[in-house]
Structures are given as structure tokens and as C-alpha cells.
Nucleic acid binder design. Structure first.
Length: 955
RNA sequence: GCGGGCGUGGCGAAAUUGGUAGACGUGCCAGACUUAGGAUCUGGUGCCGCAAGGCAUGGGGGUUCGAGCCCCUCCGCCCGUACCA
């Protein structure tokens, strides 16, 4: 019987489906393990071979953990709100839910084709009202909470109100808006309920604020910073302009410190943790006030606050730089400088941010005409504007120390400003800045002679005493904009009520949460998916959409990351109608043990998820501070494009196109053209398929057929380039075609065999035959393929030989080590060696082969299920079996030793294989005659070793 | 610029983390069985050399009995980030 991957795989996929083999329930008698994939956005293009890479790895771990006795939660779902479906809706008028459903069906089909052990009964999709009801509920909980810095956690807003009623703002240490008033308990209690409510709005974790946002006129919507790439929208690539708009915001900054410290408790790669640390950007320094004086009036005027991480260099300050957008620019500019400043500010505004940032080499700036005084020595400091200072970071103002900072140095050189050395450890400051902290201070007033640490302390002390500055921790992280002016997202469960019941009623409106009983607030139908004529978001088109038939709803929807910031909890209890997940389910599944996904979510999804999780922990809904205990980033699979080369000038009217093989390009003037990788094998072009599929290329415009210049062996060799996988580059490989030709098991093995999981690599189908052959060889350990006999089943009940046991146990050890270490590629190699060796030994022992089936089953589940049943086990039960026990006894003889001659002396180095830890590697000196015989090729029969010395050598 | 990573045969890659470099796979060469081979099996395959031998992990230097791995330096590539004060 030959192996037929199509029949076998379909049979078992159907079996798993019908028997719900991978359905999982809470089971307090067994340890749990939660393996999660980053759920995909179901795009219209379907899956390509890059998508399943991480899913295969997580599936292997899931299947392995099941065999090790864990109750494994391994779900899949869809992040199904998103812009592409909406844009398609705008073009076609088709409801995004419809297209999403079509794409989603295709995704599920493709995923099932690869044989993943997902519990599909737990599928979630973020665009389903049953799901987004709870996304809206989390929003409400955030709205109903404030951040108490004293307890360092989020608390219900009621605890804040109690404090206000008891002591006013005294003793309240909260994260809030900048313009929070202070008041006494009497003040508070004298206010109307509406006034009190209005005040609490400044403290809630989700709040309305006027924010300068990235507005994209083409999309008619606002984008988050991390959705804007190079100054254009990430999706679509449209220009983005700065615009002030009223937006819902999330106070993620309240969690900045905890988001950093939490990184120490989780098992993520250092590079990813570093990315998040940098994004949050905690820097310890000082804020210092420089009092500005007007050049003409020469009197104390206004104070400019700067943030610096190097307050120790303050005596080296020779100028100050403000961002062109700084609020004081207008008032600091003297009449003489007015024209130059206006020109500079306008140029900076017009210049797209991307240009401003990209151009780091050109020094530009302008003098305002004003000065301020250095608070430590009262020296006048000229105030400049320059666009290398960002309005959004710190205070938008920098004290410039050209001796210690290269940008400041360049600026000083350009404008002829003084450069004062302030440390005796600095060198060459005539040619460049030196940011060293080594040495003793010079030219630095009262800190002369001190070292960095004492100087910093002394300075902060000095400034604090005079009220001119203080030690401060600054973050780069900013509160997240939470509103989107688009249709295909979760409606924000808020309505607006005009202020009428307060003495100060001015007709303005306040936001209120809708009644929780009214959740989910479902997306209303609209006639078009575009903004309204008055510039309202698409939801403004919904007719008669009023809360309680009278109040306006919030018209913006939530961003894409809302639904994905808590979804791992929904998988725990996806059908629950009364809670986002039951307490019982959460207590059992706790948090995600292993999360696999791409590194591109480092500062988006992975940060927001940690934020929401911490919030939910604070409010007692979840047990863990961190949602994802271990995170593995799979590398991106790139496309491998193939090219043909057409000689320039051929292929037009009356000239037959001529294609030159890649090996003969020398001296030819050719145009490279993408050719479909699916008609290229080992970079050799299938000429017939090419001629058939690309009539547009292989004939001249008037029909003359193409000529080809081949290699000397008669083949047409294509050129190769690594590019992103995309339709337009003809380099997309669909997993379905691989599954059809080789089978899902081969696809799974091959994707793992390609290289380390974390490494980015181009997809290359060359070599997949190797894994295909492996599966066939594996099969032949069970069936000899002799069609003439009644049964070609060759497994026997013979006892395994020592050699067979050695091979088996070496493979058990290797496989479990590899899976625990996510080193799947070497595991596949060891399977190949194992099968080759067992075949060479003509191993037919049931005991060995049955264990081998279990070892391979996480990688190649279909063929293993088939063989498992053939071995007489209950059909479909391979996932309920028990992982073979590794016994090191069978490997002892693997130790080896070899003599090396060093400086006339001979040493014997001993290594021990898998059964001994590496720390026992020996280096010992033997008797000369023993060594002599060894060198002559007569090794000792037996060497008995204990750590660090040889006990006995038998020759 | 800064941060992180990488550099090993024609190609994808191994190397028990300082101990026989190139496992395994592909590709290529030769052979077997074949009417046939894009099937299967066997052998060979880092480079130079007829051989003995020599040279090899981007270049150079260092530590070490011993370096692909550690240190210094230079070169090249990739990813992230955008002047973060």
C-alpha cells in the first residue's frame, strides 16, 4: 500500500471535525496549558504560505503538550474589523459584514486544510455583536475608573467621588487632565450633580480631549501615530495632515511605569522588550525653569520649562531651542526678528513631518531676539527655534549644551555660538561634542571639581530650593487616541446630553454611558460608508439612530486594536451571555502560556493588550498582571521572485521578443520581468507553461512568437530576488497548492525545516521533495509497498534490538528538547536520520515504531493518525496518547573521546552525549602508553569516568 | 545618527553554547534498476592538490592547550526607530 496523502488527510480532517477531537473543557484534574496564535485579519487575498508558519509551530507545541498530559487550550479566531473591508464597501456598497464573512469562510477552509488542532467551537470574531458587546463593556469600565497613584492602580470612580466629598482634592493623587481644578470638600458638595460629573470626566481612564491628530483627508479619518508610516497612512498610503479634533483618549500613560517593570516578569525576547521600553521611553532627569527676559524691556517676563537628562551640564548651556510650534514663540519674538521667525515657523508647518525628520544633516533655526536667564548663574541665554526640537516630547524646549550634545554642537557651530567645556574628561570638543560623564566639572560654578553623581544631586537640590526646577521622570509614551471616524468598528457606547440642570448651563453637552442593559450597541445600517456631507463620521448617516429616541450617540467607532486587546479571555468562555468570561473559566485558564506572532505588533497590539490586562487586573476581573507569559516571534516569510530577461527593443511591433537565460546576461541590455514562481522549478523556467500563461509577453505586439537564449544545458534559468510576497510580483505561493501536491504533513514539516522559527526567510519550494521523501520512507517502515501480497503490513511484535532502542531514545530526547526550545528545524532533521537508520536496520518492532509515531504526530498529525490506527489503536486517539518516556540508559555508549597533541603533550578530551549534562565535559591526562596505543588507533575498551578525573582505563 | 540582529559549501542550514566545522535536506557528479525518468536505490561532493598534504566559518588582530562561538577593530547586509534633549 502506497501512501496517499489526499485520501488520508481528508479522512482524518473529517474525522477530527465530526468527532470534535480537539474540543477542550475546563478540567481541574489536569494541568492547563494555553497556546495562542495572534489571530489574523481575514483579508480578501486569503492565506499565503507565510501565514501558517507560526500556526504550525504553536500547533506542534499544543499537540506535544497534550501528549505530555496537559489540558491544552488552543483556539483560533478573527480580528474582523478593519479598513480593507470598509474600503471595499465604499467601492461596492456591499456591507463589510458580508465581505468579511466570505473572507473568513475561506480562511477557515484553508486553516482546516493544514490540520491544525484548534477547538473551533471557541472561534471568536471581533465584529460579532456577541463579542463586541464585551469590548464596549471594557470601554465602559475604563470610563467608570480613575487611576489612584497612592495605591498605584485603577479604582472605581466612586472612590474618587468619596474622597472629593470628604476632603476635596486634598490628598488625592490621581492621573488626570492638565487643567484639573483644586477644591475643598465644601466646594465639591456645593456643586450640582452635573458639575460634579463634569469634573470627574477629567479623571476617568477614557476621556474626551482636543488632540492634534493625524487626519487623513483621503480616508476621511483619524489615524493613530503607529498607524502612520513615513507621514502617510499605513493602509493606502495617503497623505496625513495635523488637525485638532475632539477625540476619545485612553490614559495608557497612567500605566507607563508598570508597563516597563512588568517586562521583567515575562519571558519575551530581549529585543522585543527593548522595543517596548524605548516606545514608553522612560527617562530620568530634571525639569528646569529658565526665566525669559524680553530683549528690549529687559525685565523678568515668563518662564520656559525644559526637561533634561543631563542637568549636570547646565553650566555649559549657551543657548536654548524651542520647537517652532511652542506656545511661547509668538510672545518671545522681537519685532526685528518677527519676519524671520514667521518665515521659519511657516516653513516648518508646511514641511511635512516626514521631511523634517528625514533631514538630520541640515542645520536650520532662527533667533527669536529674546533671552532667558540660566537659573544657576543668571547668565543670559539666547532663545532660538529649530525643528530638531519636537513639540510633542518633554516640554518642547531644550537647554542646549554644545560641548556635550552633537546636535547642539552642530547648531552652535552653524550660528557661531560659544561652546563651553564643562568636564575635564571631555576631549576634542573643537571638532565634535563629547557626551561623557567621566571626569570633574570645570567652568561650572559651585559644582566645579565634583563628579557626575554628586553634581547632579547638588544641582537638583539647588534648583528645588529656589523653586526653579526638580527631579523628574519623563515618558515618551503618550495617551492613545481611541476614536476612529469610520464605520467598520465597534460603536462607542456613549451618548451626549445637553447641560440643562446646572446654574452654568450653557447648552454644551456632556458624554454619558448608555445603560449597560442596552449592550451591545449594534452598528446601525447606513446608506453609504463615507463621512457625511457635514464631515461627520459614517455613523452620522444612520437614520433615526438616537439613544432613547432623543440623545445623539457618539458617532466615531473604536480603533482596530480595541477588539484584540482582550480577546484571549473570550476564548476561555466564548458563548457566555452574561460575562466576558466566567470567573470559573478565567480561574482555570489564567493567562496565555505561549503566544506566537509577528514582531510588527511590538508597540501596538502587544502594548495595548498589556495595558488593558493590567486595568482588568486592577479591577479584579482577571488574576494576572501580564497576559502573555511567553512570547515567540516568528520570522516573516518573504517572497522569492523569479525573473525572465527580455532584450531591450524586442517584443514590440514587428520584433519578436527575445528572452535571455540568467547565466548569459553578460553584455546584454535587458529588462527584467516578473514571472509566476509557480511555473518555475529550481529556478528553471517551464517554457511551455510560460508561453501558455503569458501570451502578453511571449509574443510581439503583432503576434511574432518569442525566442529564447538558453544555458548550455538547454534550460532557461530565471533570476531571483527576495521581495515581499504579493500578487503584483507573481511570487505568492498558496498553501492549498502545496497541500494538494505534497500534503499538509509535508507542508508542516517543510515550513519547520526551512530554518529557525524566529528568523526571517524567503519562501523557496526547492527542497520540499526531501520532506516528501521522508514521509514516504516513514510510511515504508510500516508498509513495504508490495502490491502482489494480500497485506504488505510489515510491523511485527519482535523485541527491539539495542541498536533500535538507542536510535529511538536519542530521537525522543532530541524531539522533546527541540520542542521545549522551539528549535523545530533540527527536530525534523533528527526524524530523517532516525527513519533512515531504522530502515537500514530493517526495524519492524511494534514497540519502536509505535513510539516513533507519537514523536512525529505533533509535526505530521494526519499520517501519524493513520498509522496509529493501523497499529491497532483506537482510531483518532493519537492526541490522547502518552508521550514516550526517555530512558538515558540506551544512550550511555554514545560518549566518545579523542586524543589531541598539544605542545608535545597529549591530552584526551572526553565528551558525553545527551545523557550527561555539558558541565561534565572532561579534560584529562592519561598514561603515555595508553595514549600512544590510542593514537595508533587502538582506543581503550572502556573508560570509566567521574567528573573531573579518570578512575580507570582498560586497554 | 541611535538601538537590535546577522555574516559558515552552489543553496536552506547544523555545530551538544569554548572541544572532531559543514549534521540533515537540496542541488550537482557517478553508478544500479528501467522503453523511459521530475520514480526508487547505492556511492561521491567545502576549496587547492595526482598524492602526501595544505587552506577554510566576511577582513585583520587578541585571549586560550584549543575560537564559527569570547574580546578589540574594520567591512558588508538586514530589521526597528526617527533629531527623545
Amino acid at each position: 500500500m502506497d501512501y496517499n496523502h489526499r485520501d488520508t488527510e481528508q479522512k482524518w480532517q473529517r474525522f477530527w471535525d465530526e468527532n470534535q477531537t480537539y474540543r477542550v473543557e475546563t478540567d481541574a484534574t489536569r494541568p492547563k496549558y494555553y497556546v495562542l496564535d495572534m489571530f489574523p485579519y481575514p483579508s480578501g487575498a486569503g492565506l499565503h504560505v507565510g501565514h501558517p508558519l507560526g500556526y504550525i509551530a504553536s500547533d506542534i507545541v499544543s499537540r506535544y503538550k497534550r501528549l505530555r498530559g496537559f489540558n491544552v487550550l488552543h483556539p483560533m479566531g478573527f480580528d474582523s474589523f478593519g479598513l480593507p473591508a470598509e474600503q471595499y464597501a465604499i467601492q461596492t456598497g456591499q456591507h463589510p459584514a458580508t465581505t468579511t464573512e466570505v473572507n473568513l469562510t475561506r480562511y477557515i477552509e484553508q486553516l482546516k486544510n493544514i490540520g491544525f488542532s484548534y477547538d473551533w467551537s471557541r472561534e471568536v470574531k471581533t465584529s460579532s455583536p456577541d463579542y463586541y458587546k464585551w469590548t464596549q463593556w471594557v470601554f465602559m469600565e475604563l470610563f467608570r475608573s480613575w487611576y489612584n497613584r497612592d495605591t498605584d492602580r485603577a479604582e472605581p470612580i466612586e472612590t474618587l467621588i468619596e474622597k472629593f466629598a470628604a476632603n476635596g482634592t486634598t490628598g488625592v493623587y490621581a492621573v488626570c487632565d492638565d487643567d484639573c481644578p483644586t477644591f475643598t470638600a465644601d466646594d465639591w458638595n456645593a456643586k450640582t450633580e452635573t458639575e460634579q460629573y463634569a469634573i470627574t470626566l477629567k479623571y476617568r481612564l477614557t476621556y474626551l480631549a482636543d488632540a492634534v491628530v493625524n487626519f487623513c483627508p483621503a480616508l476621511g479619518m483619524v489615524l493613530a501615530n503607529d498607524e502612520v508610516k513615513d507621514g502617510v497612512s499605513e493602509r493606502g498610503g495617503y497623505p496625513v495632515v495635523q488637525k485638532r479634533m475632539r477625540q476619545w483618549m485612553m490614559r495608557i500613560t497612567a500605566y507607563a511605569d508598570r508597563l516597563i517593570t512588568g517586562l521583567d516578569t515575562i519571558d519575551w525576547t530581549d529585543s522585543l522588550k527593548e522595543q517596548q521600553r524605548n516606545w514608553i521611553g522612560r527617562s530620568v532627569g530634571a525639569s528646569v525653569k529658565f526665566v525669559a527676559t524680553h530683549a528690549e524691556i529687559d525685565r523678568l517676563w515668563v518662564s520656559i520649562e525644559v526637561f533634561t537628562t543631563r542637568v549636570d551640564t547646565i553650566f555649559g548651556v549657551t543657548f536654548m531651542v524651542l520647537a517652532p510650534e511652542h506656545e511661547l514663540v509668538e510672545s518671545l519674538t522681537t519685532p526685528e526678528q518677527r519676519e524671520a521667525v514667521d518665515a521659519y515657523v511657516n516653513a516648518a508647518k508646511l514641511r511635512p513631518e516626514r521631511d523634517r525628520m528625514a533631514d538630520a544633516k541640515t542645520v536650520s533655526g532662527v533667533f527669536t531676539g529674546s533671552y532667558c536667564r540660566n537659573p544657576v548663574n543668571n547668565e543670559p541665554v539666547p532663545i532660538y527655534l529649530a525643528d530638531y526640537v519636537l513639540a510633542g516630547y518633554g516640554t518642547g524646549a531644550v537647554m542646549a549644551v554644545p560641548s556635550g550634545d552633537q546636535r547642539d554642537w552642530l547648531f552652535a557651530k552653524h550660528f557661531g555660538l560659544p561652546i563651553i567645556p564643562i568636564l575635564d574628561g571631555q576631549k576634542d570638543i573643537d571638532t565634535q561634542a563629547d557626551n561623557t560623564k567621566e571626569g570633574r566639572y570645570i567652568n561650572s560654578g559651585f559644582i566645579n571639581g565634583l563628579a557626575y553623581k554628586e553634581a547632579t544631586t547638588a544641582l537638583i537640590d539647588f534648583l528645588e530650593k529656589r523653586g526653579m526646577g526638580k527631579g523628574k521622570v519623563n515618558f515618551r509614551l503618550r495617551d492613545a487616541v481611541f476614536s476612529r471616524q469610520r464605520y467598520w468598528g465597534e460603536p462607542v457606547p456613549v451618548y451626549f446630553r445637553p447641560r440643562v440642570d446646572s446654574p452654568n448651563a450653557d447648552g454644551s453637552v456632556l458624554p454619558y454611558l448608555i445603560d449597560e442593559a442596552d449592550l451591545p450597541l449594534e452598528l446601525p445600517a447606513v446608506d453609504k460608508y463615507l463621512p457625511t456631507e457635514t464631515g461627520e463620521p459614517p455613523l452620522g448617516r444612520a437614520e433615526g439612530w438616537k439613544y432613547q429616541n432623543q440623545f445623539d450617540y457618539e458617532l466615531s467607532t473604536m480603533p482596530g486594536w480595541a477588539g484584540s486587546s482582550w480577546y484571549w479571555y473570550r476564548y476561555m468562555d466564548p458563548q457566555n451571555r452574561t460575562e466576558f468570561a466566567s470567573r470559573e473559566a478565567i480561574d482555570y485558564w489564567q493567562s496565555v502560556d505561549l503566544y506566537i506572532g509577528g514582531t510588527e505588533h511590538a508597540t501596538g497590539h502587544l502594548l495595548y493588550s498589556r495595558f488593558w490586562n493590567k486595568f482588568m487586573k486592577d479591577r479584579g476581573y482577571v488574576p494576572h498582571e501580564e497576559p502573555f507569559q511567553k512570547l515567540i516571534n516568528q520570522g516573516m516569510i518573504q517572497g522569492r521572485s523569479n525573473f525572465v530577461y527580455r532584450i531591450k527593443g524586442t517584443g514590440g511591433e514587428g520584433v519578436a521578443p527575445v528572452f535571455v537565460s540568467a547565466g548569459r546576461l553578460e553584455g546584454m541590455d535587458t529588462t527584467p520581468l516578473h514571472v509566476d514562481v509557480n511555473i518555475v522549478e529550481n529556478d528553471i523556467l517551464n517554457i511551455e507553461a510560460f508561453i501558455q500563461s503569458r501570451a502578453d509577453l511571449v509574443n510581439s505586439t503583432d503576434g511574432l512568437p518569442a525566442g529564447f537564449l538558453f544555458e548550455s544545458n538547454g534550460a532557461y534559468l530565471c533570476g531571483v530576488e527576495i521581495e515581499k510576497m504579493s500578487k503584483s510580483k507573481f511570487n505568492v505561493v498558496n498553501p492549498d497548492t502545496i497541500v494538494e501536491k505534497y500534503g499538509a504533513d509535508v507542508l508542516r514539516l517543510y515550513e519547520m525545516f526551512l530554518g529557525p522559527l524566529e528568523q526571517a526567510k524567503p519562501w523557496n519550494t526547492n527542497g520540499i521533495d526531501g520532506t516528501f521523501r521522508f514521509i514516504k520512507k516513514f510510511w515504508k517502515l510500516f508498509f513495504n509497498g508490495d502490491a502482489t501480497s494480500d497485506s504488505d503490513w510489515i510491523v511485527t511484535d519482535t523485541a527491539p534490538t539495542p541498536a533500535e532502542l538507542k536510535i529511538l531514545h536519542r530521537t525522543i530526547k532530541k524531539t522533546q528538547d527541540d520542542i521545549e526550545n522551539f528549535s523545530f528545524n533540527t527536530s525534523v532533521s533528527s526524524f530523517m536520520i532516525c527513519v533512515n537508520e531504522l530502515a537500514a536496520l530493517k526495524c519492524s518492532s511494534r514497540a519502536v515504531l509505535q513510539d516513533l509515531v507519537l514523536l512525529l504526530s505533533p509535526y505530521a498529525p494526519h499520517v501519524c493518525e493513520e498509522l496509529w490506527a493501523a497499529l491497532g489503536n483506537e482510531p483518532g486517539s493519537v492526541s490522547r496518547a502518552t508521550w514516550p518516556v526517555f530512558n538515558p540508559v540506551y544512550l550511555v555508549e554514545d560518549s566518545f573521546a579523542y586524543p589531541i597533541q598539544i605542545n608535545g603533550k597529549v591530552r584526551i578530551t572526553m565528551n558525553f552525549a545527551a545523557d550527561r549534562p555539558a558541565t561534565e565535559i572532561e579534560q584529562v591526562v592519561l598514561a603515555d602508553e595508553t595514549v600512544q596505543k590510542w593514537m595508533e588507533g587502538k582506543p581503550p575498551k572502556k573508560v570509566v569516568v567521574v567528573p573531573k578525573r579518570i578512575v580507570n582505563v582498560v586497554v
